[in-house]
Amino acid sequence: MPAEKTQNGSAKKDVIIHVEGLVTGFGKKIIHDHLDLDVYRGEVLGVVGGSGSGKSVLLRTIIGLNAPREGVIEVFGKRAGQAEGSRMRSLEMRWGVLFQEGALFSSQTVAENIQVPLREYTSMSQELMDEIAAMKIALVGLPPDTAQKLPSELSGGMKKRAGLARALALDPELLFLDEPTSGLDPISANQFDELIAELQESLGLTVFMVTHDLDSLAAITDRIAVLVDKKIKTGTIEELRKDTTPWIHEYFSGPRGHAALAGLR
C-alpha cells in the first residue's frame, strides 16, 4: 500500500495549504515561531512532534479554532484562520475535520450526525440525506444498523469511523485528522489506516494528519512534517531518517521507529 500514490509527483505541485511565518502562543509561551508549511494537493501529510510541541494547535489554527499571533494561512488559495463569516463558511464546506474522540453530537444518532452538515449547506430531500448517510456509513465500513445508534452506544473505534463519515459528509477535498489511530488497538488502527488510504485514493482527498503512530506514518503518508524547536521540518521518511536533529533522529531510530520502519526496506 505505501509509496505509490497516483496524484503527486506530477509536473507542478498544487499548494492546498500554505502557512507562512506563523506565530502562535498562549500567554508568554510561544508554541510556533515563524513556522512555514506547504501541503500539496492529493498528498497525505503526517504531522508528528513531541507532546506539547503544538501539533494539535497547528491543526486548530489552520481550521480557524485558534487565532494566530502573526503569519499567513491560506487554504485553497484563500486567507483562512481568521476569515470572517461567509468566507470562512465557504472554506469550511470544502474541508472535513475528524477530532480525536470523534466529537459526535451525543444527543443525535449517527445518521443525524452525518446529516447535520448536509442539512446546513444543501437543500437535499430527507430521502436523499438518508441514502447519503447510509452510503457514508458503508463507506467507512460500519454496519448499517449503526445509523440509528447514539454515539454512546458505539465503541471508540466505531466513534472514530462515524466521525470520519461525518467529516466526509460534504465530500470535502481536504481532510484534517487529529490522531485518528490513538486509542485504537493495533488491528483496528491498521484497518483505520487502510480505510484512510483507500478513501484518500478513491475520493482524491488531501489529508493533513496529526499522529503519534509510527505505523500509520510508515503505512500511509507521502510526506512527514516534524515539529521541533517551534519550527517544522518536512520530508519523506527516508529523508528524515538521515536528519541529524536530535529529536528527529531519536524518533525514527528509536526501538519503536525501527520496528515500524522495518517493513519499508
Binding site: 445518521a111 441514502e131 447510509a134 458503508a138 463507506l139 448499517p144 444498523d145 449503526t146 478513491s202
Partner: peptide, 20 residues
C-alpha cells in the same frame, strides 16, 4: 472508476441500511 467500484462494493457488502 475506483470510487464507483468502492462505493458499489461497500454498499453491496452491507446491504443498504433501510431505516426501520
Amino acid at each position: 472508476a475506483s470510487l464507483l467500484e468502492n462505493l458499489d462494493r461497500d454498499d453491496k457488502k452491507q446491504g443498504h441500511g433501510h431505516p426501520a
